[in-house]
Measured scan of single mutants.
Amino acid sequence: IGSLMYASIFGNVSAIIQRLYSGTARYHTQMLRVREFIRFHQIPNPLRQRLEEYFQHAWSYTNGIDMNAVLKGFPECLQADICLHLNRSLLQHCKPFRGATKGCLRALAMKFKTTHAPPGDTLVHAGDLLTALYFISRGSIEILRGDVVVAILGKNDIFGEPLNLYARPGKSNGDVRALTYCDLHKIHRDDLLEVLDMYPEFSDHFWSSLEITFNLRDTNMIPGSPGSTELEGGFSRQRKRKLSFRRRTDKDTEQPGEVSALGPGRAGAGPSSRGRPGGPWGESPSSGPSSPESSEDEGPGRSSSPLRLVPFSSPRPPGEPPGGEPLMEDCEKSSDTCNPLSGAFSGVSNIFSFWGDSRGRQYQELPRCPAPTPSLLNIPLSSPGRRPRGDVESRLDALQRQLNRLETRLSADMATVLQLLQRQMTLVPPAYSAVTTPGPGPTSTSPLLPVSPLPTLTLDSLSQVSQFMACEELPPGAPELPQEGPTRRLSLPGQLGALTSQPLHRHGSDPG
C-alpha cells in the first residue's frame, strides 16, 4: 500500500511539474524568437521594450494561443456562430445594431475584428487614413492633437468618421493612444458598406441611429477645401490634362476667341504652333527640309505637354522668318557652300510665315494684346468667377478644330508651292551661260556676264508674291485673308516669265 501511494503521488507530481515546464519551455522559446528578432533588426531601446511588454501581456492574456488560427480551423457556418458569440456584447448593447435580422448580425459579426491594445500603444496616428470604424468594449483611450489631450473615450464609445457622408476615406486629425488595456472591435469601411448593401432595409436605420462619439476626420483635408492638395495627390493619381488660365478682364471677355491653345513656353509662336517648341509643326519652317525628324516628334510632343491658354504674339512682318533660324542665316552668309535649293526654301518659309499670320487673323479676328503681368498667370479653374468647365471645354474643342483646319490648309498650300517650284525647275534647270562666239564683223562684242542661278530668282519672285499679296490685293481696312490656291498659281508664272525669257546656255562643266 505504501509503495502504491508513493507511486501515485510521485507520478502525479511529476506530471504536474512536467506540464509546468512544458508551458515555461514554450514561453521561453517564443521569447527567444522575439529577442532574436530584436537583435537581428537592431531595434532601439524604447521600441524594444514595448515589443517585450506586449509579448508578455499577450502570452498571459491568451496563454500563447493564436485565436485567429484556431477560429480559421472551423467551417464557415461554425465561424459565424463563434463570431456572433464573441461580439454578442457589442451587437446587443450598441444602439445602431438593434433591430437587425439574424442574418445581418451574422454577416456583421464575420466582418468585425477584435484588437487588444496595451497602455501607451498608439492605435491611430495623425494623418493616417481612416479605413475603419472603432467600437470600444473595454478600457479607455485618449485622443491628442500635438501634445494636447482633446478627448478621453471609454466603454461603448465610437470613434472614426461617418462613412455615409464621404465617398473616400479621410485623414485623422489626431493621435489615438490607449490609456489602459483596451479591447476594441473594428470593422473596415469596405466590409461595412458591403453588408449594408446586402441589407438595404437595415442601412437607413443604421446610419440614422449611429452616433460617433469623436469624429477623427480632418475637415481641412476634404477635397475642394484650401488644404486638400495632399489628399488630392493621394487619391487622384490618374489626373486628366491640367489647364491653367490667364485672368480675363471685362474688356477681354467681350471679345470671342481671344486665346489660343499652345504648349508651355510657346507664347511667341504662331497660331498653328503645336507639339515641339520653336515654330509651326514643332520646328522652324525654314529647317523643315533639312530635319525630317521633326514630323516624327510632333505626335509625342503634342500628347505629353499640358495645355496652356495664352494670348497671341505680336504680328510678324511678311518677309521675316518666324524666328530662331540660325540654319538659314548661316546659309545666307556662306552662300557659296550651301545647297542652291536652300534659297528657294527660304522664300517658301517667308510665304508660310505670311500665310500663317494672315490665317491666324482670319480665324481669330481680334487685335493683338500685350501679355498680362506675371502675377495674373496660372489662375486655377476652381477659383470664384471662372467660367463653367463645359464652356471652357467647348472653347478648347473649337480652337482645336480651327487649328486642324489651319494645319490642313497650310499643308495644301505648301504642296502647291512645291509643285510650282518643281515645275519651274523642270522647265528651266539651273545653269550658267557659256561665252558666246564673236560675230564675223570687226565690231565684236565682249563675252556675256554669267546669269544668276535660278534659286536666287525664285527667292526674289516669291518675296514679290508675298509683298504683292500682303499690300496690293487686300483693300484698305479689310481683314488680311489668305489668297486662294488658283490665284497664287496664276501669279507665280507671271512673275517668273520675264526672268526666264532670256536664252540660257548650259555650261560645259555643268553635270545637269
Rank of each mutant, 00 (worst) to 15 (best):
S273P: 09
M328L: 10
R389C: 04
G154D: 06
K240L: 12
L366F: 05
V392Y: 05
P388C: 06
S287R: 04
D252T: 10
D250Y: 08
R506C: 13
S394N: 15
Y199D: 02
V150Y: 09
Q422N: 04
C369M: 06
W207K: 06
F214I: 07
S433V: 11
M414D: 05
R423E: 04
M198S: 09
S209A: 13
V435E: 13
F468N: 11
E298M: 04
A269P: 09
L459K: 13
L420H: 11
V149K: 05
S272M: 11
G139Q: 01
R177L: 06
P322L: 15
N404F: 15
V176S: 01
E258D: 08
S287Q: 15
D204M: 13
V150H: 04
P321A: 13
P479D: 11
P374S: 08
S291C: 15
G360Y: 08
C182K: 01
P438T: 10
A415Q: 07
E232Q: 12
R189W: 09
S466M: 07
I212G: 03
V348G: 09
L462C: 15
S272N: 07
R423C: 04
V465P: 11
T445N: 12
V451L: 09
E254W: 10
Y363D: 12
Y166Q: 07
T500Y: 12
P455F: 04
G497A: 07
P306F: 06
P280Y: 01
S461L: 06
L231F: 07
F354L: 09
P440K: 09
F235S: 12
P453I: 07
S446R: 08
M221Q: 11
G154T: 09
T337N: 04
M414R: 03
R177V: 11
V150C: 06
P326Y: 06
P429V: 06
T436H: 12
R401P: 01
E296P: 09
I187D: 03
E325V: 14
L399S: 03
E230F: 08
K171N: 09
F135Q: 01
D197L: 09
D204I: 06
T131D: 13
L399C: 04
F202Q: 05
K333L: 12
G356A: 08
L421R: 03
F235L: 11
G441K: 06
E232D: 13
G154M: 10
L449T: 08
S203Y: 09
V176N: 03
A267V: 12
G268E: 10
N164M: 08
P326G: 05
I212L: 11
P200D: 06
H507P: 10
P289H: 04
L192I: 07
Q255F: 12
G265Q: 12
I379H: 13
S346Q: 14
G224A: 09
T373Y: 08
F214R: 03
S244F: 07
R395Q: 11
L130Y: 01
Y199S: 02
T180R: 03
V148Y: 08
S382C: 05
R389V: 15
P482R: 08
S303Q: 13
V150T: 04
R217G: 09
M328N: 06
L192H: 01
G257Q: 06
G233S: 09
R423M: 05
D460Y: 05
T408L: 08
G257I: 13
P256T: 10
A132H: 13
R395V: 11
D330G: 12
R308S: 10
R395G: 09
T373F: 06
S446E: 13
G146T: 08
R241V: 11
D297R: 12
T213F: 01
E365D: 09
T131K: 09
R246Y: 11
V435C: 10
G160A: 03
I158F: 04
T443S: 14
I351G: 09
P318C: 15
T443M: 06
L133G: 02
L129G: 04
S314C: 07
S236C: 06
K242S: 13
L492E: 10
L410H: 03
S314H: 01
P315L: 15
L427W: 15
D175C: 09
V259C: 14
Q495T: 11
E211Y: 03
P429D: 13
M425E: 07
F352H: 14
G268D: 12
G477C: 07
P511I: 06
M198H: 12
Q238N: 10
G170D: 01
R138E: 11
E393W: 15
C369D: 12
H188S: 10
D336N: 05
N173Q: 09
R395A: 09
E480V: 10
P321Q: 15
I187Q: 01
L192S: 01
D175V: 07
S509A: 09
M414V: 14
R395N: 08
P162A: 08
S284T: 15
D357F: 07
P493G: 10
S501H: 13
H185C: 09
P264N: 15
S349G: 10
N350Y: 01
G356T: 08
P511C: 04
S304L: 11
R405C: 12
C338V: 14
S358P: 06
G268K: 10
E480F: 02
L262H: 10
L376R: 09
R359A: 10
L449G: 09
G233W: 10
H507R: 05
N173E: 05
G127L: 03
R239D: 11
K242D: 13
A132L: 03
G512D: 05
P384Q: 14
P340S: 11
E298T: 05
S208C: 12
T213V: 04
G356I: 08
T219Q: 10
R409L: 08
S172N: 01
P438W: 11
F214E: 03
E232H: 11
S433R: 08
R387V: 06
E407P: 03
L481Q: 07
L410P: 04
P482A: 10
C182T: 09
P429H: 15
E201N: 07
R308D: 06
L454P: 15
L462V: 08
R237G: 12
A498E: 10
P318F: 15
M198Q: 10
R239H: 11
S382F: 09
R506A: 13
M221K: 09
L396V: 04
K242H: 08
P380D: 08
S236T: 11
S353C: 04
Y363Q: 06
K155M: 08
S304G: 13
D357G: 09
R389H: 13
G233P: 09
Q464H: 04
V348H: 04
R145I: 03
L243Q: 15
R386Q: 10
D204Q: 05
N173K: 10
I152C: 03
S452Q: 12
G477F: 15
P306N: 15
M198A: 06
P326A: 11
L327T: 12
V259G: 11
P486E: 15
L399P: 02
T408H: 09
R189K: 05
I379G: 04
L427G: 11
Q238T: 12
S314G: 04
P388V: 06
L454V: 11
T213D: 05
T456Y: 05
V195A: 04
P315Y: 15
S228Y: 11
P438I: 11
P440G: 08
S444F: 08
Q362P: 10
P318N: 10
S172G: 02
S461A: 10
L179S: 06
Y363H: 09
R138F: 07
P482S: 07
G347M: 06
